[in-house]
Amino acid sequence: MLLVKWADQGGPPVHAVTVDHNLRAESAREAKFVKDVCARIGVHHDTLVWEGRRSSGNLPDAARRARYSLMADWAEERGIPKVAVAHTQNDQAETFLMRLSREAGVDGLAAMSKTWRHGLTEFCRPVLGVERAELRGYLNAIGQDWIDDPTNEDEIYERTRARNAIDALSDLGLSPRSLATVAQHMSDVRGTLYWYVFLTAREHAQIDRGDVIFPRKQFRTLQRDISSRLLQKILKWISGADYAPRGRSVDFMLEAIRGGTGMTLHGCEMTVSDEALRFTREAQAVEGHRSSAGDIWDGRWKLDGPWPKGAEIAMLGEDGLAECPAWRQSGMPATSLKASPAVWRDGHLVAAPLSGLGNGWTASLLRDQDHFFAALLAH
């Protein structure tokens, strides 16, 4: 409603989308309710139905990931650059309390971002500073009904318990606004820490054809808050994963660095020499990746050349490396090259641009050095 009012006053046109997770019998009826409201106010509406797995794992997290992925694809297909979601100050406070119960640190307690990207789509939270009651008051004032999700009353869900706890804490002055304010303070601290991560990487890190190299001596002098965040950012950037590794897994890698031993984590492999740490893609993580002509391989490589019929992109591997007699002249270690992209046809190696077997082919890194340094400031 607020976005439609903005559009009437000269703002961007509005399109609406509902994701039906298909987890409750009422969900289709609720999506239709939204569609009917949109039709009444002249807004085009689409319903996207999730057909994902329901049987195992963290269902709320899987549903959330699917929701944003579906909306991002929907927006990209329609040329819509931004998608607004209605997270409120209450959601901010509830998230803070939930993470506090898990003994989270600065990153976990920091406020939700007002904007973030999923692929080419920018998501935004325009009412993050508004209490839920204020929005309901606005809807009442204009005579618009709404539907409350019944799972919001089910205490089997952590968020419901957090919501009830905030109500109980109000006598102590712990309102949604005060908790959200603390979360924002923590977000400011997090931003400062990542600024130092950025400055440290700018001074010492090098990008070599998709690998990240960092002087070992300088890494060992970093404060732990900086070194752990730097590790997380490196591994997330190389792997292209939605989330960085956390907790004990990062601690184990820090211990490996101190002990001078290599380690694999998060689809990446770290090797340690006397002089440097080198982070590269783990061959096992890309073993099954296949791409056709013109497609992106492993989310970051694009190969160009004289495509023969039936060719595909796959990792070079140990057998492929053995067919590249000049690979040492590339200056890259075998570990990195085994996980690099190569062109194959009917089980025969056609080209391996990074390993000295060009045959008219080139390999372009889409997530380049500038992308890496920019990623250090995105959180």
Rank of each mutant, 00 (worst) to 15 (best):
L2V: 04
A7S: 13
H15I: 00
V17H: 09
H21D: 12
L23Q: 07
L23N: 03
R29M: 08
K32A: 14
C38W: 00
T47E: 10
R65L: 11
L70T: 07
M71G: 06
I80D: 10
Q92V: 14
A93Q: 03
M98A: 14
L109Q: 03
R117Y: 03
E134K: 05
L135M: 14
D145Y: 00
D148R: 05
P150K: 09
R159Y: 05
N164G: 10
L174D: 13
Y194N: 11
L199Y: 00
G210C: 07
I213F: 07
F214V: 10
F214Y: 13
T221R: 11
T221M: 09
K233T: 09
P245M: 02
R246H: 11
G259L: 13
M263H: 13
G267A: 10
V272R: 02
S273I: 05
D274K: 12
R290G: 01
W297E: 06
P306A: 12
I313N: 10
M315G: 13
L316E: 07
G317H: 08
A326Q: 10
S330P: 01
A334G: 15
S336N: 09
S340I: 00
A342V: 06
V343L: 07
D346V: 05
L365G: 06
L376S: 09
L377T: 15
A378K: 08
